[in-house]
């Protein structure tokens, strides 16, 4: 029924729960998995839960973001590999995760989005409730919300 399932992640427990369910669903449907992460732009200020918490040069900050993004995407990559599913990872620089998810779904021709709710702030906070709500409101493809 579904051929390409988009699983957004920010590494939060809520998004990891969505990863487990999304991969299980993809395995049942023999669908491809597209994982996406919205990485914040590398500025000298480091934010956590939308609050400035530290300073790093943009290069250092970029390395931190890349490491963290890769770690979160790798979780989905390993699960997809274990389930023997086709997999694609997408990392987009954006402070607007809802737009990133919707744009990626369109560009990668996904037919389902599986995402969590009740996330946290900062890089981990790309899945706060409002993000899920925005995706639900604007998505033209089905969205499965995992609680």
């Amino acid at each position: 029924m579904f051929r390409n399932i988009l699983i957004p992640t920010d590494g939060s427990p809520a998004s990891q729960k969505a990863v487990r369910r999304g991969v299980a669903l993809a395995k049942a449907m023999k669908a491809k998995i597209t994982a996406v992460i919205a990485s914040p732009p590398a500025t000298p200020i480091i934010y956590r839960k939308k609050m400035p918490v530290g300073y790093a040069t943009p290069n250092e900050h970029q390395r931190m973001i890349n490491r963290s993004s890769k770690r979160h995407l790798d979780v989905i990559a390993r699960a997809a590999k274990k389930a023997r599913l086709r997999f694609e990872a997408v990392q987009i620089v954006s402070d607007f995760p809802d737009e990133t998810i919707l744009d990626t779904a369109k560009k990668k021709k996904c037919d389902l989005i599986v995402m969590g709710t009740q996330g946290q702030g900062g890089l981990r906070g790309v899945f706060i409730g409002s993000t899920t709500q925005k995706v639900l409101n604007q998505s033209k493809i089905p969205v499965m919300v995992i609680r």
Partner: peptide, 14 residues
């Protein structure tokens, strides 16, 4: 140029 929106927090960082 960057084909993305710049958030207020990114703007304020500079």
């Amino acid at each position: 140029e960057e084909k993305r929106k710049v958030s207020l927090r990114e703007f304020l960082s500079w």
